[in-house]
């Protein structure tokens, strides 16, 4: 049975529009035009116990709102969700005891105190015994290699170090479900890698169910077998990341290098020009046409080198976003 069941969940926000300038500010004092933003629209999915699911999408797509709904911070406008049998926004204590949320840009640690004190507070909040607390703390501190940092004031820690402590604070009660909202945001590459490695090892050891949002493709590719792509509040893809490109058609890219420059108009006869200039170009063509196009360009154009490439996941993603935006502009929507 699924540990998370989400059925047609929607969340609308009301907001006000204000144009720049003092004149509009003055007008705004008396009259505000109220607008509605559909942050999450009819989202449905299920997550099995022990799964790691990645949420992908541009800023404002609705990823964080979905996590906030599932952790009970927000009430939905419509739809239902069951997590471990609980309705999150009822905010039952039993539910809160069994999940945790880490938000990359928000800290639960006391800024002026050593991390130890914040952890001790969580020990009381989650009603942990001394033994259970110490055992988990030892294990996590070892895994994250932060034993020496626990007695340092939080404000003196680097961002990467602080995120490690945030993770310990969120895992100290051994939650069954963990929501990670941009856990690697703002971190350097090495710190990102360390955090990623930790999440991977931890989830493997404990079978914790993890829902993760991130802007960094590496996070998702490394950690999640399954990804949910969300855009404009709706799910546009749910499945294995490697299969996502099929959604935008089976296409390949030809990277061409020329002896003398070739103009874009000539190139566009053979396929979609992704980029061109300085004696090279990138063409996108249907998979079954690769051979024909290649033969044609080799015959006609001054090619000195070429390469056939797969579409990267980022390329696939931006294609999906673009396709959906175009569909929305003509009044439709892909699903």
């Amino acid at each position: 049975m699924a540990i998370i069941e989400v059925d047609r969940l929607s969340k609308d926000y009301t907001y006000y529009e204000k144009e720049t300038g003092l004149r509009h500010s003055l007008r705004n004092l008396f009259y505000r035009k109220q607008l509605i933003r559909h942050a999450v629209r009819d989202v449905s999915f299920e997550v099995e116990e022990g799964e790691i699911v990645g949420f992908l999408g541009p800023n404002g797509a609705g990823k964080t709102t979905t996590l906030k709904l599932l952790s009970g911070i927000l009430h939905p406008t419509s739809g239902t969700a069951r997590v471990m049998g609980f309705t999150p926004w009822e905010r039952k204590k039993e539910y809160k005891m069994n999940f945790s949320i880490v938000m990359g840009q928000k800290s639960q640690l006391w800024w002026d105190l050593p991390a130890n004190e914040s952890l001790a507070l969580n020990k009381s909040i989650y009603e942990l015994s001394d033994r259970a607390f110490q055992a988990t703390l030892d294990e996590l501190a070892e895994l994250l290699d932060v034993r020496d940092l626990l007695s340092v004031q939080v404000r003196r820690l680097s961002l990467g170090e602080r995120m490690k402590i945030e993770l310990i604070a969120s895992l100290i009660h051994r939650p069954k479900i963990m929501f990670l909202d941009e856990p690697t945001i703002g971190l350097d590459l090495i710190s990102q890698k360390n955090i990623r490695q930790f999440i991977k090892t931890y989830s493997k050891q404990t079978k914790t169910t993890i829902l993760l949002t991130s802007h960094y493709m590496a996070d998702i590719e490394n950690l999640c077998k399954r990804s949910v792509v969300i855009n404009h509040g709706s799910i546009v893809f749910d499945g294995e990341l490697s299969k996502m490109n099929r959604l935008v058609g089976d296409r390949k890219r030809l990277r061409l290098q020329f002896g003398v420059p070739v103009d874009e108009v000539t190139l566009s006869r053979y396929g979609r020009v992704v980029e061109s200039g300085e004696g090279q170009a990138l063409l996108e063509v249907e998979k079954q046409e690769v051979k024909t196009v290649l033969q044609a360009v080799l015959d006609v154009l001054p090619i000195v080198d070429f390469n056939v490439e797969e579409l990267s996941i980022e390329d696939g993603l931006s294609e999906i976003y673009k396709k959906e935006r175009d569909a929305l502009e003509v009044g439709g929507q892909i699903s």
């Binding site: 809160k96 949320i101 800290s107 909040i125």
Partner: peptide, 12 residues
Amino acid sequence: SGLLDVMMTKPV
């Protein structure tokens, strides 16, 4: 700042 969100998820 959204710190209220973090507090909201605590079992107290």
